[in-house]
């Protein structure tokens, strides 16, 4: 079982219980995932660490009465790649705005590094430096006419000295491969370029967590790759990365941990190959099963693969599985190739 009872709550300040997944299935999923995907081993368990950010019984209502979050409790594990999935209007953006202190829960608390966040000016400034929020529409985030000036906005708000800010801005321009765009006016950038500038404008503030709202929506495959690489490089630097997306394939392939939301509730959380293989759950959330999972299921049904295997996360994972199982004359314990 991979879905979580939406009414599941836990006491404030205490990490969610680890027994959310079947331990056997969980271990199998991990060991196979590690073997199949060319990625470093990751542990999707969220116990033991309080998580970098957590929502505890958070309810949020907009002034017009729309209740966007209902008694929502979830934890963003430290140092992970987290994908939050859910249909349009399920409350992802609202949750992010609560994490950054822009919106304040009507009830419940937001916990940052184990402490409930404070809403005084100083505390918010510190929170916003530590929790960087990249918005979905870059045209709603970039306000200056030049790329360099826009990136310098955050650092100056942090009260850094001009030299320090200038040095950081130049560094981030290099780090995010924006050198040839730095002199360009914002309005002459393409959508994907604007998106990269928007990310740089948040990164320059050196946040511990980067929360990106649909960072790949509307991007071509190449730019999607660039943006994901950028986020991955930040992850390698030890940061926690959180994205929201409707793209289940992307979440399956990229994330270490996924959270599925539905109408302001938490529907499920856990490792991507478990959560995203739960077809009824995904349907309930208004999402579709990833094609890789679908194909894998059909191969299993056709007897090409045993259903005991862990769900593949990418097409190459699936291919590797097939290669391993497709040759009946090969002795079962011989290497795949």
């Amino acid at each position: 079982m991979s879905s979580i009872d939406p009414t599941h709550t836990h006491a404030p300040g205490i990490a969610p219980s680890p027994g959310l997944q079947d331990p056997e299935e969980f271990v199998a999923a991990r060991s196979n995932g590690d073997q199949l995907a060319a990625r470093e081993p990751v542990d999707s368990k969220t116990d033991g660490s309080p998580g970098v950010l957590a929502a505890e019984s958070v309810t949020f209502a907009y002034p017009d009465g729309t209740v966007a979050l209902h008694d929502l409790s979830l934890t963003l594990p430290q140092g992970r790649r987290v994908a939050i999935l859910g249909a349009n209007g399920c409350g992802k953006t609202t949750l992010f705005l609560n994490f950054n202190g822009i919106l304040r829960p009507s009830a419940g608390t937001i916990v940052h590094n184990g402490e409930p966040i404070q809403y005084d000016r100083e505390a918010l400034r510190d929170l916003r430096r530590r929790v960087g929020l990249v918005f979905q529409d870059p045209d709603s985030q970039l306000f200056a006419a030049s790329v360099r000036q826009d990136i310098s906005f955050g650092p100056l708000n942090l009260g850094w000295s001009e030299e320090h800010a200038r040095a950081r801005v130049e560094q981030i321009i290099v780090d995010t491969n924006l050198t040839e765009l730095a002199e360009r006016p914002t309005h002459m950038l393409s959508y994907g370029q604007k998106k990269r500038v928007a990310i740089a404008g948040v990164l320059v503030m050196e946040p511990e967590v980067i929360i990106a709202d649909e960072p790949t929506a509307g991007l071509d495959p190449e730019t999607t790759g660039r943006v994901l690489n950028l986020l991955d490089s930040l992850h390698h630097a030890g940061r926690s990365i959180v994205i929201s997306t409707h793209d289940v394939e992307l979440a399956l392939a990229w994330a270490d941990h996924v959270i599925v939301m539905h109408r302001g509730h938490l529907l499920a959380e856990g490792p991507p190959d478990v959560v995203l293989a739960d077809d009824p759950l995904l349907r309930e959330a208004g999402l579709l099963q990833p094609i890789v999972v679908d194909a894998y299921r059909q191969f299993c049904a056709a007897g090409l693969l045993p259903s005991s295997e862990a769900v593949p996360r990418t097409v190459s994972d699936l291919t590797a599985l097939l290669v391993r199982h497709a040759a009946p004359r090969t002795p079962p314990n011989s290497p795949p190739d």
Binding site: I102, L133, S140, Q141, F143, L156, R166
Partner: peptide
């Protein structure tokens, strides 16, 4: 825009280098 700028620490001044 106000929301996005607030997330980057805007509190009334639009200072840039």
């Amino acid at each position: 825009l106000f929301t996005a700028l607030t997330a980057r620490g805007y509190s009334g001044e639009l200072r840039v280098l």
